[in-house]
Amino acid sequence: MSFSRLVLRYTAFAVLATLVNLATQRGILAFGTGPALFAAALIAGTGTGLVTKYWLDKHWIFFDRDRGLAAHSRQFTLYTVMGLATTAIFWGLETAFWLAWQSDAMREAGGVLGLAIGYVVKYNLDRRFVFTGARHVPAHAG
C-alpha cells in the first residue's frame, strides 16, 4: 500500500472512531450534565472508539494476521497502553476547551483536535511496539 493510501485509510478510520467516540459521549450526555456524567461520557466514548480503532488498524492498516485469544489479548493490551499517552492528549484538550468555553461545540472541537494529534502519535507507537510482525508502509514512503 502506498504511503498516501495509508494516510487516507488511517485518517478515515480515525474519523470513524472519532464519530463513534463522540456519538457515545452524546448518548451519555443526553441524560444530563455535571462532572460525573462528563467523566462517564469521556470514559465510555474512549472505550468504544478504542475497540473500533483497534479492529480497523489490526486488519486494514497493519494487516496483522495474529489470531487467537492470546494474540489478541497481548496486542489489545499493548494497543491500550500505547493509547494512554494519546488519551491524555485527547482528554486534556477536550477538557481545556470545555473549561474555556463551556460549550458542547467547543468541547467537541477540543476532542477532535486532541484525537487528531493523538492518532498521529499512536500510529507511530503501534507500528513500533504493537504490530511488530505485521506488514508496514515505511514512514518515509511516498
Rank of each mutant, 00 (worst) to 15 (best):
I43K: 03
A71Y: 01
F76D: 12
Q75E: 14
T48S: 12
R65C: 08
G47H: 05
A44W: 07
L56F: 05
T48E: 09
K53M: 13
A44S: 13
G45F: 10
L37F: 13
W55I: 15
A41R: 11
I61M: 08
A70D: 12
A40F: 12
A71F: 08
G49F: 04
T80Q: 03
K53S: 15
F62G: 06
I61K: 00
G45P: 02
D57A: 01
M82Y: 06
F63N: 13
D64M: 05
T52Q: 07
A70G: 12
H59M: 12
Y79N: 01
H72C: 11
H72S: 13
Q75T: 07
A39W: 05
P35T: 06
T52K: 04
V51A: 00
A39M: 01
T52E: 12
V81T: 09
T80F: 06
W60P: 12
R67W: 05
R74P: 10
R74H: 15
A40R: 05
W60I: 11
H59V: 00
F63H: 14
K53T: 10
L69T: 05
I43T: 08
K58T: 01
T46G: 10
P35V: 07
A40W: 13
L78M: 14
T48R: 02
R67V: 11
G68N: 02
T77R: 06
V81K: 11
A36E: 12
W60C: 05
V81P: 10
Y54R: 03
H72Y: 11
S73T: 07
L42F: 10
F63D: 11
M82A: 15
A41I: 09
A36Q: 13
D57G: 08
I61P: 13
L50S: 09
T52C: 15
I43V: 13
K53E: 06
T52N: 09
H72E: 11
L56C: 07
W55E: 15
F76H: 00
V51Q: 02
H59Y: 04
I43L: 14
A70Q: 04
L37H: 02
W55Y: 08
Y54D: 05
A44E: 11
G47L: 13
I43W: 06
R65F: 01
T48K: 00
W55F: 09
G45E: 01
P35H: 10
L56I: 05
F63V: 06
V81I: 15
L50T: 15
S73I: 02
I61Y: 08
L56S: 12
D64H: 00
D66Y: 01
I43Y: 01
I61S: 02
R74A: 12
F76C: 15
G49Y: 03
R67Q: 15
A40I: 09
F63E: 04
T46S: 01
Q75H: 00
K58I: 02
T80E: 00
F38W: 03
G45Q: 10
W60V: 11
W60R: 15
S73Q: 07
A40S: 07
K53I: 07
